[in-house]
Nucleic acid binder design. Structure first.
Lengths: 341, 341
DNA sequence: CTGAAAGCGCTAACAA
DNA sequence: TTGTTAGCGCTTTCAG
């Protein structure tokens, strides 16, 4: 055009005409608490995922619409639906939308579930390989440090992540003789619930401490660390503590937290790519993609800084092989249009 | 309509027809480094702002389009422009878009600058009151703890926040006899640059330590804390350390960091409200709104947990009085349309 | 190759 | 009240 002088095409008109909005929506959980009382994993997890998604999207010149939903909120389903009218596809965080509703949304618009349960049927899933990450961590505790009586700080029953991790732990423990889970506490992924877990543990076994506390995430591990420190119990001398996720503050805790790194940014990138592929080819089979985790050895497990290291514990491979080379440049539009249900 | 059975209107068509997209854009800085090497304040700052914005937007049923820009990136201006075609207004983080470009964007679409310099001319600004926050902090150090020789860890020269804070510090120091800034270091807001600051300070004044280190943000203060701890210098016994921002990890550091709380979420909310107002009434005068900060006393200043407290240091008041009651329900559309420059 | 015209799926103004 | 129609600002197709 002759007018390089500041003409900007109207996005809505372009979308309407092209029958494609070039916008995808990301649905993650709302921060419930006002400030720094970290309620759950979401805080640092989705923030990082977000950057991964945006980065990938940018390569395609698409935009990102973001929405926070309170977890069990019924009203929010309307918002989700109306959101689906503004985007070409949806990225939804695990556990935010109940399965049946998810199915209905997935009917209207391509959906990829982030950090979803590996047995999700109705939509694509991209998640970290929680199983092998947890397994490697517990194996490290047992085999390298000979910690054989374990206390487990679990996550909420509804969280598939927590379930995966628990299963892996139990499996590794079962595979090792003279090794057992001597107690457990069900937390809600918050630092505060970690503190409560430690207190509960101390109330029961103050004079008979387990060898290690295995937490379903870092936030709770940090809470455990704080409660233990208050109680005058030193880590890792008296007891080891490990987490999961590798959030930033875990590096700062005292002692630095041994944990499993989740590739959060990569999670966002892969989920986004998958969604873009599916928008291009709506008839792709739903698929689960598991991303490798990484063992992050710091000091809270009993290792010294010298022996610290990072190691990938999952081969980078999808649950099933990719169906084809990444198309990535999104093509087909022309779907029957909005009237569908 | 008769069809409650799953009909969802097409957003693009609605936008086109109503001449309003009911979408606003948020531009914040891209995380440069891959994972947890926190480059600058953005990491935890904008994540929190984001939630504030989304919350406010949700009340109106509008959506949020988010974009990350690398700071000095020239190419990104195109992205900004094309973004302006997809939204009704823009929220832009300070320092991301150079002033002249900002002016051009603000010509096309309403813009509010978040954490901007209080002397911004071309657009609305919503920012924390850095001046009084810093002043209160330094006054606390001097008057409560008698720390009179101060080392200043400054931020980048381009950051208005850092400048505001520095000015306030200098002013308070000048107002107190027998008090001086005995050295300074220019960091880049990262924890790592905080470590370098501490090392530089030690190299010079190892045997003649200042009474306190005043850092332009928490990340750098945490870096200082780490470097000091490595050097065997204890805080606050040998030297006090204070930060600014009140990011989460500051609570976890050893000792817990005394700092100034920025109302990040509120920042997002107010900025969003202001933008909505301005979309409703495009001819509003640009205005600066300063939000109150809060002194967060923990241990690194020399206070004991018992004496710890939080106190608001800025009255909740805009720089100038509000022009009128918040319209908030956005009305006017009908502007000349996209051809403008 | 350049230029006119027909939608895209809605909303709003208007006629019946 | 209810039903009809003219755009909204683009892209794309089809004539010229």
């Amino acid at each position: 055009m002759i007018e390089q002088l500041g003409y900007v095409p109207d996005g809505a008109a372009q979308s309407l005409s092209r029958r494609r909005k070039e916008i995808i929506g990301l649905v993650s959980v709302e921060r419930v608490s006002p400030q720094f009382d970290i309620e759950n994993m979401s805080l640092l997890f989705y923030d990082e995922v977000l950057h991964g998604v945006e980065g990938r999207l940018r390569e395609h010149g698409w935009s990102l619409l973001i929405t926070f939903l309170k977890c069990g909120d019924l009203v929010s389903f309307d918002r989700l639906l109306s959101l689906s009218g503004k985007v070409d596809g949806l990225l939804i965080g695990e556990g935010i939308v109940p399965s049946p509703l998810l199915a209905r949304v997935a009917m209207r618009v391509p959906v990829v579930v982030i950090a979803g349960a590996p047995d999700e049927k109705v939509a694509d899933v991209v998640a970290a390989d929680n199983r092998s990450g947890s397994a490697a961590l517990v194996r490290h505790l047992i085999e390298e440090h000979d910690r054989r009586s374990l206390f487990h700080v679990d996550g909420p029953p509804t969280a598939p992540d927590a379930r995966e991790r628990r299963l892996a732990i139990e499996q590794v423990v079962a595979a090792h003789p003279r090794t057992q889970i001597v107690g457990s506490y069900r937390g809600i992924f918050s630092a505060e619930s970690g503190e409560r877990a430690a207190e509960a543990m101390l109330a029961e076994r103050r004079h008979h401490l387990p060898d290690a506390v295995v937490c379903a995430n870092d936030q709770m591990a940090i809470g455990v660390l704080q409660a233990l420190s208050r109680a005058g119990i030193s880590v890792p001398e008296h007891i080891a503590v490990v987490g999961f996720d590798d959030i930033y503050p875990g590096n700062l805790s005292d002692p630095p937290l041994t944990t499993v790194h989740q590739p959060m940014r990569l999670l966002g990138e892969r989920a986004c790519s998958r969604l873009l592929d599916r928008i291009a080819q709506p008839d792709l089979q739903p698929r689960v993609e598991l991303l490798p985790t990484e063992l992050v050895i710091r000091a809270s497990c009993g290792c010294t800084p010298a022996s610290a290291r990072r190691s990938v514990v999952t081969p980078l491979a999808a649950a099933r092989p990719r169906r084809r080379a990444i198309p990535s440049v999104v093509k087909p539009a022309r779907r029957p249009a909005g009237k569908a249900r």
